[in-house]
Amino acid sequence: MNTPNPRRPYVRPMAGWWRRNPFFVEYMVHEGTALFVAAYAIVLLVGLLRLAQGEAAWNGWLDALKSPLSVAFHLILLAAIAYHCWTWFRIMPKTMPPIVVRGKRLPPGAITGCGLAVAAVASLVLLGLVWGMTR
């Protein structure tokens, strides 16, 4: 005798999944830093165009950067990209092969700390180079 299949699996919707857990909200925020990285790349890209167009165009771009609106915008960019930096190194222990030092695995905090330290050094070297070249 044929009986109808009583199985009727129910698939729950995914809409709004990222609002269900604070962990996911934070994930969406740090993924969102990409918008600010893109915005900064576009600012620089416009700068390249202005530089290629000659002195007057370049000075116009420099003046635009001096406007309070631009400075405020760059402060937001700075905060967003700094947050990207922190989250980038925070996830690093989960993305790297284990590093064994003297027979012991480097703990996650040490890996994140190393990453942030390297970023700090790289940033200071960059600032130092610019300072040295423009003094």
């Binding site: 990285v37 001096k66 990207h84 930096c85 423009t134």
Partner: peptide, 22 residues
């Protein structure tokens, strides 16, 4: 971006336009 992004933004968008540090 993680290594030098924040410093680049600071240099081109804040320090130089405002004449700070540089």
């Amino acid at each position: 971006a993680a290594l030098i992004g924040p410093m680049l933004v600071f240099i081109t968008g804040i320090a130089v336009p405002l004449g700070l540090v540089l």
